[in-house]
Computed example of a mutant assay.
Amino acid sequence: MDLPRFITIQESSHRIHNPLTADKLATLGQALSLAPGTHALDLACGSGELMNTWARDHGITGTGVDISTVFTARARTRAAELGVADRVDFIHGDAAGYVTDEPVDLASCIGATWIGGGVAGTVELLGRSLRPGGVMLIGEPFWRREPPSQEVIESCHAGSRADFGLLDELIEQFADLGYDLVEMVLADQDSWDRYRAAQWFNLRRWLDQNPDDELAAEVRTELDTAPARYARYEREYLGWGVFALMGRR
């Protein structure tokens, strides 16, 4: 049980595995007014930057779960670097279906709603670990504007237009699921640039060092096609954000 090696190569320099910059992650933590001792669960936590930096900056505690052995190892190393290893724990495992024994104050899944089969399933999954009155964080793509063709849709990593909503549609979906939107931090085009361009640099450096690896041809193809595809489609049509939700009473 692990992520494909291509993904860990592509994301090798990333501490945050989505187009949320460190500044925006910090902004989100500040906006939530996190109290010391807030207990959190982060499903598909990646390299644990949310849990680790918020433990350092706000005194939260909690657990991150991720399917990648590479990422969970990085998360533990980062926790030690930041002096928070006694407050956070990282588990290598499948986040799909993971529920805590005791309710948490904050439950999150940032950019990996496939663990619940989509937004609705992930909201339901996180809700099983969240205490009444707690805060849920969902990171999710949305259409910045209406995609004009199937080519655009597929180039933005979707199978159909319905895979993502426009921003207002996504917000309405949260309401239909019984949650109030109480805060949001959205990626901008520069956030996307920093995330995607770093992937290309990671791939190029790896390819220079591993020209005869079995993945070399796949990496070469990605470098040949990804930058222009990103500029033509994803940068223009795909948005992304983290949305803070609280259950309606």
Results as ranks from 00 to 15, higher is better:
Asp2Ile: 15
Asp2Phe: 15
Ile7Phe: 14
Ile7Ser: 12
Thr8Val: 12
Ser12Asp: 10
His14Glu: 08
Ile16Gln: 00
Ala22Trp: 05
Ala26Ser: 02
Ala26Cys: 00
Leu28Thr: 03
Ala35Glu: 11
Thr38His: 03
His39Gly: 01
His39Ala: 03
Asp42Glu: 05
Leu43Gly: 08
Ala44Cys: 10
Cys45Trp: 06
Leu50Cys: 09
Leu50Ile: 06
Met51Lys: 00
Trp54Phe: 07
Asp57Met: 03
Asp57His: 07
His58Gly: 01
His58Val: 02
Gly62Thr: 01
Thr63Gly: 00
Asp66Ile: 01
Asp66Leu: 05
Ile67Ser: 02
Thr69Phe: 10
Val70Ala: 13
Phe71Glu: 13
Phe71Lys: 05
Ala75Lys: 01
Gly83Arg: 05
Gly83Ile: 04
Gly83Met: 09
Ala85Asp: 15
Tyr98Gln: 12
Val99Tyr: 06
Thr100Pro: 02
Thr100Val: 04
Val104Tyr: 09
Asp105Arg: 03
Ser108Trp: 08
Ser108Gln: 06
Cys109Asp: 06
Cys109Arg: 02
Ala112Arg: 12
Ala112Gly: 04
Thr113Ile: 03
Trp114Ala: 12
Gly116Arg: 09
Gly121Gln: 11
Gly121Asn: 13
Val123Gln: 06
Leu125Ile: 04
Leu126Lys: 12
Ser129Ala: 07
Gly133Leu: 07
Gly133Asn: 08
Val135Trp: 00
Val135Asp: 06
Leu137Arg: 05
Ile138Lys: 10
Glu140Cys: 05
Glu140Asp: 10
Trp143Ile: 09
Ile153Gln: 09
Cys156Gly: 07
Cys156His: 05
His157Cys: 15
Arg161Ala: 15
Arg161Cys: 14
Gly165Thr: 11
Leu166Cys: 14
Leu166Gln: 15
Leu167Val: 08
Leu170Cys: 12
Gln173Ala: 13
Gln173Arg: 13
Gln173Val: 04
Asp176Pro: 05
Leu177Ala: 11
Tyr179Lys: 05
Val182His: 02
Glu183Asp: 10
Val185Leu: 02
Val185Arg: 06
Leu186Trp: 11
Leu186Met: 14
Ala187Trp: 03
Tyr195Leu: 07
Gln199Asn: 14
Gln199Ile: 15
Leu203Asp: 08
Arg205Phe: 02
Asp208Trp: 13
Asp208His: 09
Gln209Pro: 04
Pro211Cys: 00
Asp212Pro: 12
Asp213Ser: 13
Asp213Tyr: 03
Glu214Thr: 12
Glu214His: 14
Leu215Lys: 00
Thr221Met: 07
Glu222Ala: 09
Leu223Cys: 02
Asp224Cys: 00
Ala226Leu: 01
Tyr233Cys: 13
Tyr233Glu: 09
Tyr237Thr: 03
Leu238Trp: 05
Trp240Pro: 15
Met246Leu: 09
Arg248Glu: 11
Arg248Cys: 11
